[in-house]
Design a protein around this nucleic acid. Structure first.
Lengths: 341, 341
DNA sequence: AGTGGTCGCTAAACTGATTTAGCAGAGCAT
DNA sequence: ATGCTCTGCTAAATCAGTTTAGCGACCACT
């Protein structure tokens, strides 16, 4: 890879100057008294030789690699990982940095390995990302340098970037109230584990809190709340069937994520009910399926790309110590209507 | 990041030996005549100081960085990217390598930038990945070192890893024939652009070819073939409605991907038809939604994780020059049944 | 004439590893 | 006593940059 690259010494020789001079010119150092002509010659030589500095050599001296580690628990399994990475990639490129990506798979041994691997490569900082918004404790080894938590918070008070799930909860509830839904709003996706253990999820509790707060302020209470062991379509399906078997039919359903909503749609379809004429549905995440459903599903978007970007900005440009809350925009789609009759 | 790390010189000093000796012991060099005691002392010193070599320094001398570039056109937008990356990550870790990830977004300027960025960092090789299986030409700049194409082929005859879409086409057709479907099989997802331009897609043509070949051998021809401008649910929906409006109803549908099948399901549901009793459905990709649909959708899986893994193996361990075809396993699910009546 | 300052530039040290070339001492044969 | 080999180790060069310290020439001023 990259054999026969021209070195700084080659450039200097061609320009008839010392390495020192060439280095200073190419780095645009202020206050050196090199002549305009020397500048010309160095630039010309570098151009002609297609010179590009060897960053390994440079970083040996400067201890800067222009490389950031992106350490995450799981990159696959969720389609969102790509957006998180893409946002980080974009922001890194704008700052002439590059991303070293590793995955811990939630395994302590892998994590240890991943961290050593990136520290050995002298990365300038670490973005420690979680795929589900949660609280975690970062390994001590990376605390020697800049760290930003992405989609996670930690007890150490490290800079972190998380979505505003509570705000999203408020948006969702407000959207329903504005349409006139009041005493027939049901919730699908309560989950003790997610709500009570911040190391599993911070989103569940925050979303619930946002919803409750808004409804309380309007003096509205939920018609029903369904617990689900997981947030997958099958659980949404089962929950929806449960709701439909009760005497009072809800006028609107809030699902804790889009996959639950997908399951709910399936149950509604089987029951011969139409969205949104019979029942409105709204949820969280803006999974791609939300737009594919018929009718399209109103939801609040997890701004993964923005979050990835913000993490890099925080890491390289510095910034707020308190968690950076990224708003979750409401996507108004066809699944919303005023209550029937 | 990584301040105050012990250096090799520290280890040597503590062991009372030269850097040379320490280096040789730690690298397990054969044929050096260092005493067993010297070995002990070096290991002990390294252990005690928590010594880890500075890879930037090492690579300056050895021209090896134990780092691979993963350059892809688009990492987001498709949920599959994660699996491709994960497979590569796993295989890289097993070989003590790490992945530098960049994205070109299909833009020539970004591509140029990405390639320079990774070459400047002296990567040991490049995995050039495409998110949709297609043919492409790799930029000359990376041809100076090892390159493997992932989910793509090139006219240069570079080593490449692609899914066996033609085999998948055969599996799909065979599965339907075995169930007894013959003269009422319809196809959704013909697409001139994808079929005719290998720089857009290799999958469409290969899948179609596999299907046709198997049906021809059984002397069966397709009842209908629907063209779709894109392979999204809405197009599958429209195509399915089209098929249902014709006099002869198909007994089975082959969709060119799962998203089309999702759309087909929606149209079938609206028409009051049930899968698989009225119509069987089978498709390609094994998108997560395939398992979420009711009934679950039979499909052939794109083995992204395996492909990512294979690419790294090819790059680091060497191997076949001709394209490495990774089989696409058939996932038999509930959407298949013998034709009705 | 001597002193000091600025200008334009360079030699050499330094970063932390690997690798080449070779040295001192022991043992052995001649 | 000399030459030879083998053992166990080290000094120094090297990789490709950055950075520190300083050199010679020229000018101005006292």
């Amino acid at each position: 890879m990259g054999r026969n690259r021209a070195t700084l010494a080659d450039v200097a020789r061609k320009a008839g100057l010392s390495k020192t001079a060439a280095s200073m010119v190419l780095n645009g150092r202020e206050g050196t008294r090199l002549s305009a002509e020397a500048h010309q010659r160095v630039f010309a030589a570098a151009e002609e030789l297609g010179y590009r500095p060897n960053l390994a050599a440079r970083s040996l001296r400067t201890r800067k690699t222009a490389t950031i580690a992106f350490v995450s628990d799981i990159v696959a399994t969720t389609r969102f990982a790509g957006d998180l990475i893409r946002g980080a990639l974009d922001a890194a490129r704008e700052r002439d940095h590059v991303l070293l990506i590793t995955e811990t798979q939630g395994d302590a041994t892998f994590e240890q390995y991943a961290i050593e691997a990136v520290l050995d490569r002298q990365v300038d900082g670490v973005i420690y990302a979680a795929m589900a918004t949660r609280r975690l404790t970062v390994p001590a080894a990376i605390l020697g340098g800049p760290v930003v938590l992405l989609n996670a918070t930690s007890p150490d008070g490290l800079p972190s970037v998380v979505p505003d799930d509570e705000g999203a909860g408020r948006s969702v509830a407000t959207a329903l109230l504005e349409l006139g839904h009041r005493d027939a709003i049901a919730l699908i996706g309560r989950n003790r584990l997610k709500e009570d253990d911040p190391e599993v999820s911070l989103a569940a509790r925050a979303r619930l809190h946002g919803i409750r707060q808004t409804l309380n302020e309007a003096e509205v209470s939920l018609l029903a709340e369904c617990f689900c062991t997981e947030w997958l379509p099958e659980h949404g399906y089962a929950a929806m069937r449960g709701l439909l078997s009760k005497p009072k039919r809800p006028s609107a359903i809030i699902c804790m994520n889009d996959r639950l909503a997908f399951g709910a749609y399936q149950a509604l379809g089987e029951a011969g009910l139409t969205v949104p004429e019979d029942i409105s549905v709204i949820s969280f995440d803006d999974d791609p399926i939300a737009a594919w459903l018929r009718p399209s599903l109103a939801t609040t978007a997890l701004p993964h790309e923005q979050m990835g970007r913000r993490a890099v900005e925080l890491l390289l440009d510095g910034g707020a110590a308190e968690p950076s809350l990224v708003p979750m925009p409401l996507r108004r789609r066809r699944s919303l209507a005023p209550p029937a009759g």
